[in-house]
């Protein structure tokens, strides 16, 4: 034994000596699992092409990430699955009618320009998937706004494409009167046209519930985001004060739920402070409604989140909490003292 001891080299490792099993890879895997219901709904409503687009998004995102890190001689980190999440999220914001190269271009912008050029995972300041989507919206406006009729509505309306509930909601001629096939219940279930991931509120909420249950994301951003949209549309409804139907249509159409649960909760681009997360979510909600009401563009979620992404650093700075043992009275006292000192110096 003593002979063996001589050869053993002991580490003076960092404390703590044990760590949770849950690493970055596991968190990202949980996000992928949480997206499964929305992918299933997309396939049910738009056919196998939806699955095909999702896979292309995921594979091309991994490809761009691996390529970039190989070219710039950085250690590969595709094992953390974050690129898969980005690719999947980007694909889910596309219409099912999009050609296969759309997610390839989108993920290139998302991964290379938005994520890797700023140093890779955790360093980007814009949500890569949303920035990729914004890039595609600007570049391929028509392709990005061609909405196939979902299986649930085939036969109900003529043609191949149709307007989304959100477009109907805000179109001037309809004046907020929705066609019968856009009932709140059908919106909730996802029997509507739209981006692949956003149509079914039910599927999104199942995924979000899983993420919150697994403590992958906190409830703060989704709840404050959705809460803010609900509150504002309830108070300032276009069909008068306190119209619940108007509020529900605003929640279940467009990307509010998908954005609140999967996009605004992106780790790198949302605040880490607890109060900051509430402020961030509320800000996203407010901007979404403002863009919908007054913007020149029907959907506000993408830009609302991107704008709030830019405010994240400031929010984190502004909404710090007091360390344990410091009460509000202490803070007031300290501020008073500082003021008094300033006065004295004068």
């Amino acid at each position: 034994m003593s002979g063996q001891k001589e050869r053993i080299v002991l580490d003076a490792a960092f404390q703590p000596q044990v760590r949770t099993d849950r690493d970055t890879r596991r968190l990202m895997l949980d996000v992928i699992i949480a997206l499964i219901p929305t992918v299933i709904v997309a396939v049910l409503q738009f056919g196998v092409n939806a699955l095909f687009l999702c896979l292309i998004g995921a594979v091309s995102a991994v490809f761009w990430e691996a390529l970039y890190r190989f070219l710039f001689k950085k250690e590969s980190n595709i094992g953390d699955l974050s690129a898969v999440v980005t690719g999947l999220l980007l694909s889910l914001t596309l219409p099912a009618s999009a050609p296969w190269w759309i997610p390839v271009i989108g993920t290139m912008f998302a991964i290379v320009v938005v994520k890797q050029l700023y140093g890779g995972i955790g360093r980007n300041f814009l949500n890569p998937a949303l920035a990729g989507r914004a890039f595609l919206l600007a570049s391929y406006a028509t392709l990005m706004a061609t909405w196939n009729i979902p299986k649930a509505l085939s036969g109900t309306v003529d043609g191949v494409t149709m307007a989304t509930p959100l477009a109907s909601l805000y179109s001037t001629e309809a004046a907020g009167v929705m066609p019968a096939y856009f009932s709140v219940g059908r919106l909730f279930m996802g029997y509507i046209p739209g981006s692949m991931g956003e149509i079914s509120a039910l599927a999104i909420l199942i995924g979000a519930g899983y993420l919150i249950y697994r403590n992958v994301i906190s409830w703060r951003i989704p709840v404050s985001f959705i809460g803010a949209v609900a509150l504002i549309t309830l108070i300032f409804g276009k069909k008068g004060f306190g119209n619940g139907e108007w509020m529900l249509y605003n929640l279940f159409s467009g990307g509010v739920l998908f954005g609140a649960c999967f996009m605004a909760t992106d780790y790198a681009t949302s605040p880490v402070t607890l109060k900051g997360q509430l402020v961030f979510g509320a800000g996203c909600g407010l901007l979404t409604v403002l863009i919908r009401y007054f913007g020149g563009y029907p959907e506000g979620t993408t830009y609302a989140i991107l704008i709030m992404n830019l405010c994240t650093w400031a929010i984190d700075k502004g909404f710090r909490r007091h360390q344990f043992g410091v009460t509000k009275a202490d803070i007031v006292l300290q501020k008073a003292q500082e003021l008094a000192e300033k006065e004295a110096r004068r």
């Binding site: 490792a13 960092f14 000596q17 044990v18 760590r19 099993d21 690493d23 970055t24 968190l27 250690e75 980190n77 974050s82 890779g120 995972i121 955790g122 906190s218 780790y267 790198a268 605040p271 880490v272 402070t273 607890l274 997360q277 710090r320 909490r321 007091h322 360390q323 344990f324």
Partner: peptide, 26 residues
């Protein structure tokens, strides 16, 4: 077996450190 450290760690800004700090630090 107990060692879970990685060679080149990257913070993903998840904020899970803030959630658990008993001293309310960041």
């Amino acid at each position: 077996d107990e060692d879970k450290s990685v060679k080149d760690p990257h913070c993903i800004r998840c904020g899970k450190c803030i959630e658990v700090c008993p001293m309310n630090l960041e």
